[in-house]
Design a protein around this nucleic acid. Sequence first.
DNA 1: TAATATTTTTAGATTTGTCTAAAATATATT
DNA 2: AATATATTTTAGACAAATCTAAAAATATTA
Lengths: 223, 223
Amino acid sequence: MHFTISEENYIKGIFHLQQETGLVNTNSLAAEMHTRAASVTDMLKKLKAKKLLQYEKYKGFKLNEAGLKAALVVVRKHRLWEFFLVDKLKFDWDSVHAIAEELEHISSEELVNRLAQFLGDPAFDPHGDPIPDKHGSIPVIYQKILSTVPLKKSVTVSAVSNQSTQMLEMLKHYHIALGTQLMILKKFEFDGSLEIKVLKQNACIISEQVAKNIFVHDMGKTK
Amino acid sequence: MHFTISEENYIKGIFHLQQETGLVNTNSLAAEMHTRAASVTDMLKKLKAKKLLQYEKYKGFKLNEAGLKAALVVVRKHRLWEFFLVDKLKFDWDSVHAIAEELEHISSEELVNRLAQFLGDPAFDPHGDPIPDKHGSIPVIYQKILSTVPLKKSVTVSAVSNQSTQMLEMLKHYHIALGTQLMILKKFEFDGSLEIKVLKQNACIISEQVAKNIFVHDMGKTK
DNA sequence: TAATATTTTTAGATTTGTCTAAAATATATT
DNA sequence: AATATATTTTAGACAAATCTAAAAATATTA
């Protein structure tokens, strides 16, 4: 089955939204794709015709098995290329997204598998997101939201759920990246903000909002 | 200046043809691009509007300075990606063309330059074709057509001008690749065919037609 | 050079992906 | 439940890249 770049982008967009909400609606997908609701409806018809979608007019929609499979292929490619860009070409992890958006549409299956092997079959991309394997299986990881971790427990950053440029810029400022070790020194009742100690850095304060977007796991796991 | 994938493909097609013939005509470009003459004319108008082309209706056309520059960017990307596929991902040199056709359209300039650096700034791709540098300069190499080389002189294969699948398959059969060392043992007057000795292989016979597509240089040069 | 053949361009249609504006449907509010 | 609001879909238009068929320009040849 062949998909156009546009189809792949919509499939991926639906995938990301349905991870959060189960059923997806037209307007939220339009927002996600930076396009108009009418364009979304047009594409939904095409994807339904290709039997990738559970979709009833006016009722919301989500990927079916075939659609999910297609989405995982694109996600795998995106995350493998991100890994390549950071690990091999030494890009900053906060500047690779746009390039990976292009690379994810290169079609050769042979290429993806060789790339994965070349990279050492990584299980997580530079943002800590899991990379599906060639069968579409996603590795699981025991991770917690930073704000729920007990005081003085040393943990490793494993993922960041909000990947806006603003967020990534901020983390960079605090020297927080994937694999960074840190611990919570103090929790402030007033606003939920945390004083944290980042390994080899001075202690600093982060807001509750930031802490809720940082995932961590016990030291020494993963990758 | 931004180009669509289609524009880039036409620019590259024109570049390749004008290397041979100077001025290019509509039908030959249509053949090169596997499309129809009418489609070529349509695109020529667009490229002329973007000031990339010297083009008078019914008179033939060629890239101007700006067009040449654009072509060299695409050629550079194509050849760097081919190098990557063969050198890092261990693809056979005769199976990378189609994938590089897709990769060459990834737009990031930063990506290309980092890729080049990662690969060690190679000057020639796996087919022996020169890779333009970031300014569009093409390395020169002192090479000869195999059929013109004197007997018993040991030379190294540096390029193959006909890169059809058929040709590459044949070379593979004879264990001839870029960098292969060989010498001519005998030339047959009758049909111009050559008996050659490929290093570590038995002697074999190749036709004049094949020999005219193999470029060689003195041992120990290049790369 | 006049007739013929070839090459190139134009005219008009098609497909894909997008858009705006309006209509249809669903949801919320009084 | 009737009305207002929000969401979603349809209808129709547009741009890009392609096509076929026909017309125009150029080249060949008798």
